[in-house]
Design a protein around this nucleic acid. Structure first.
Lengths: 218, 218
DNA sequence: AGTGTCCGAGTAATTAGTTAA
DNA sequence: ATTAACTAATTACTCGGACAC
């Protein structure tokens, strides 16, 4: 959504129902008659009837939310000075303004987390693919190396009166051993605690099913 | 910090709201009517006698929550039959039971997501380390291969009257080229849209800083 | 057609516990 | 030590859509 600055301005407020009643604070169950079977009472909703009687409307008007959002964009914290000013400006109880900011911060935090999750997901995808590619490359290189060493062996056998294998032969010998000791010594992070359900990330299933894995869980 | 508000002790249950129980009847005279700045203390408890003050009727008792949780564990959905039974059993309005289940489902979903995030994080760590290891291995193998080919070259030059480079030499030649064409052709998933803030996952910073990266963002 | 209900997502308000001045 | 403001969790409500009768 946004880029650089750390104001988040998230989505636009989809509440465009009429700002009929500037005072959005009523509450109090109208009358009574609610105990036994509280079936969906017919709310006078669509009608927009301008503030009919017992309209205990909870939501703030779009206008109010706009101003609040704007202020939140500037600064997520709220000094009491600003709070009171805002409250006056909006015709709200300062407490409501404070509550709004608290809830807004919580929402923002959640959103942040979601974003982070999304980024992590993408990062994971990319890393997984990269890992797959690298594994393939490693196999290929090992194969090539094997061929090369076979070739060396053949050359050594056929031309067995060459001066000597001067310097590098020992190198390639010792290193070919290390290839086999490479795989095991990595910790398996996945004996963790509580995966309740079906979500299971197999990290050590070699790259063959990386794509399927992505499609499954991403 | 704490989970499970099991020690809810002082919660008497004013269930069955009387008809005149408008919880949350408050509020907000706007404008200049001052409001009683609220309390923040650990007193004002038991007395009940809500005559003067409001009847704080929020918060279900630990016992009620227990039973609800138990039922939720069995089945996240709630048929109206079970709802009514539970409501009766708990002394709650069936509506409250339904609402509780809805909220509980939402919480469960969140928790699920959090878990998934955690797993993803671990998976990412593991993959990143694996990727790092593989990159190292690739470099090593390339090095070995280079050495081996040098060796072959040397052998071919020194013993230049061997029969021929029969079969596999072309192989190792062509493959040594492919090493250079390996890196580029992978898409960079990270020109994406919204990394808002400081959270930035560098996917192409080679493995040297993989661990630092993990420590920073995990 | 049209009610009624349920659910998911979003939101407002409350409570308990923590932190800082 | 009190007090105000914070966080995290919770309760109840709103709204719109889906599915039913």
């Amino acid at each position: 959504m946004n880029h650089r600055p750390f104001q988040d301005n998230m989505m636009f407020i989809p509440q465009l129902y009429p700002a009929d009643a500037p005072y959005t604070q009523i509450i109090a169950q109208q009358g009574e008659s609610k105990k036994p079977k509280r079936r969906r009472s017919k709310k006078n909703k669509g009608g927009e009837n301008g503030a009919s009687e017992a309209n205990r409307k909870r939501k703030l008007s779009a206008e109010q939310v706009n101003l609040l959002e704007q202020n939140f964009g500037n600064e997520h914290k709220l000094e009491s000075e600003r709070k009171d000013r805002l409250a006056l400006e909006l015709g709200l109880d300062p407490r409501q303004v404070a509550v709004w900011f608290q809830n807004r911060r919580a929402r923002w935090k959640n959103k942040k987390l979601e974003e982070e999750y999304s980024n992590l997901k993408k990062s994971n995808e990319a890393n997984l693919l990269e890992k797959c590619r690298l594994e393939t490359e490693v196999l290929k290189l090992k194969d090539q190396l094997s061929e090369a060493e076979k070739e060396i062996q053949r050359l050594l056998e056929s031309g067995d009166r060459v001066p000597s294998n001067s310097s590098s032969s020992s190198q390639s010998q010792s290193q070919s051993q290390s290839m086999e000791a490479v795989d095991p010594p990595f910790f398996g992070v996945f004996g963790v605690d509580g995966y309740d359900d079906d979500v299971f990330y197999g990290p050590e299933t070699h790259c063959m099913n990386a794509l399927e894995w992505i499609n499954l869980y991403m």
